[in-house]
Design a binder for these strands. Structure first.
Lengths: 124, 124
DNA sequence: CTATCTAGGTGCATGTTGCACATAGGTAAA
DNA sequence: TTTACCTATGTGCAACATGCACCTAGATAG
């Protein structure tokens, strides 16, 4: 997360936590997760390729398990399930997210404090 | 920000916004900013090399200006000042940070909602 | 037969990071 | 003097992540 574009200060996107959360709610395949992710985080556009790669990565790490399912209509799907390790990872991620939320709040507090003092005089 | 370590779900570190904020407060050189950054964000350890590279990058983008200062003691320092563009960038970053804070809160809300329902039964 | 949607992926160029190392001025101790 | 350490700024390289474009392939609609 971070600044990928040329003149952008990038903050993170909750890709892996969101995927774990969605799969925990309901076992799903990648294509479905892409759509639900874009519904859950409408602000952040994420490439399909990125999602698929994260899913494979999390499977390698043991957070997800997958199996191929053929349905009546359409091509086969790789169905993901969350593992015990994955649930632990999600809980750990939640702790980090709470922590990061506090860091953001701390930053904003410092910013506003500083703004109050040396701040922009246009509003005077 | 993102997952750099092998089994870590990385959220961002407010490197560039923090540097802009610190330089806005007081024109500084890199080494000083590294220490103040680690004081401002004690949770996040950041490599000196990373800080220096962000400073040069932000200078290229026009958010900072630098000039060499020799002092009575020690080697020369590159002193950074924030520009008008840099202040705009900081304000934009603040908007994004507020937005991201809301995304984190939204994620946490969904997580807790889901936990309440299908959640872990250990606590029952 | 062609276009389109679903579904899952890969190749390559680019950008970012961690780690180690290089350079260099100054200071204090052995 | 030589050694060691602190200040101060950076680079080289390997590893990793992403955006963009592209590929495969089943099914379905025209």
């Amino acid at each position: 997360m971070s600044a990928k574009n040329s003149d952008e200060i990038s903050l993170d996107k909750l890709i892996e936590p969101s995927l774990l959360l969605l799969v925990q709610k309901k076992p799903s395949h990648g294509y479905e997760l892409i759509q639900n992710f874009n519904c859950l985080n409408p602000e952040e556009e994420v490439e399909p390729g990125t999602i698929y790669r994260h899913l494979r990565k999390m499977e390698k790490k043991g957070f997800l398990e997958s199996s191929w399912k053929t349905s009546e209509s359409g091509p086969a799907r790789r169905l993901y399930n969350i593992t015990g390790e994955g649930m632990k990872a999600l809980d750990n991620a939640v702790v980090k997210i709470e922590q990061q939320k506090q860091e953001l709040e701390h930053f904003l507090a410092v910013y506003r404090e500083q703004d109050k003092q040396g701040g922009n005089l246009d509003e005077a």
